[in-house]
């Protein structure tokens, strides 16, 4: 029965994308997140400039692009961690521009960070419990009377234990989060985000710095999210992983969305090839180019010396 559900979710997600054009901003049948003209500048640099983008509900969408393309900055705009200069976006039809980060999370749009943010001097279990919403004991005055919140705390603990079991962190329950390995922290951060009870999970490079033995299990967890009916938007560099788990791929370069498409064909799209090659212009030069630059520099120096004389 479980296997059935798995195939239907995946099939449903794929069916939704069937035959969609690969132009940036393609409308989706049932978008959970709709983004319009989001712009973020840092001084003269336009880090993000997205015209239009829709994220399909119940699917795993990958956001890829060369380093510095603006993916993290875009995540920050959408989740209220940084304010956009222009634009608007809606989550489940609700305007989110200007909504502070904690309210965004409460609405069911929860993100993780590229640089993992485990709360080092809290135990793994306390990290998990923190994720739960509407806790009675989080009010100062009610906190003073344990009887008011103890029952809810037990429920939260139970839910956290289930998740820890699933993420293979149960043995670490009472360890400080700071003592976990990099990969385990990624797992913890994802599990903690699930404690919020999100509809849309946004993962910024969930596999970065994770040892290969753990990546498979992380991939499995991401797929599980879709099977449980959540929507996933994640940033990733490794195309093999993107192909493995995503239903749809959005490509960013220099702040803009330049193409969208299914994972099997997107990497052969000429716009994407261009973007990735273009980004490597400052990569190692050939021997001739080096020689040429050296001569240019020498010529320049000589002319300067002449000027001074």
């Amino acid at each position: 029965m479980h296997a059935d559900a798995v195939t239907t979710r995946k099939a449903a997600a794929l069916a939704a994308f069937e035959g969609l054009p690969t132009e940036p901003g393609t409308p989706k049948p049932d978008p959970i997140l709709v983004i319009d003209k989001v712009v973020r500048r840092f001084g003269g640099l336009t880090a993000v400039d997205v015209e239009h983008l829709e994220i399909q509900r119940g699917a795993i969408t990958a956001l890829i692009g060369p380093n510095g393309a603006g993916k993290t900055t875009f995540f920050n705009q959408l989740t209220g961690f940084d304010s956009a200069d222009e634009g608007s976006w809606t989550f489940n039809g609700k305007q989110l521009k200007g909504v502070p980060a904690h309210r965004v999370a409460r609405q069911g749009m929860v993100r993780t960070f590229q640089l993992t943010k485990a709360l080092s001097r809290l135990t793994v279990m306390e990290n998990m419990r923190l994720g739960a919403q509407s806790q009675r004991g989080e009010n100062f005055f009610r906190a003073l009377i344990p009887g008011i919140w103890r029952g809810q705390e037990n429920e939260i603990t139970e839910r956290a234990e289930e998740l820890l079991e699933r993420f293979k962190l149960a043995a670490k329950r009472d360890d400080f989060a700071g003592s976990l390995s990099g990969g385990q922290r990624k797992l913890l951060e994802m599990a903690r985000a699930l404690m919020v009870g999100p509809e849309l999970v946004m993962l910024d490079e969930p596999m970065a710095g994770v040892n290969p033995a753990l990546t498979q299990s992380l991939l499995g967890h991401v797929k599980d999210l879709r099977e449980e009916g959540m929507t996933v938007l994640f940033v990733e560099h490794d195309m093999d992983m993107v192909r493995d788990i995503s239903d749809w791929v959005v490509v960013m370069a220099q702040g803009a969305v330049i193409a969208e498409g299914p994972p099997d064909t997107i990497m052969s799209d000429p716009r994407v090839v261009d973007a990735y090659l273009g980004a490597h212009h400052d990569a190692p030069l050939s021997a001739e180019e080096t020689e040429e630059q050296l001569q240019d520099a020498e010529a320049e120096l000589e002319s300067e010396i002449e000027e001074k004389a």
Partner: peptide, 16 residues
Amino acid sequence: KAIREDEDAVRSLGKN
């Protein structure tokens, strides 16, 4: 205590 460790993480979990 979580704010002491990392306030952005706490924000991302829906706390003001």
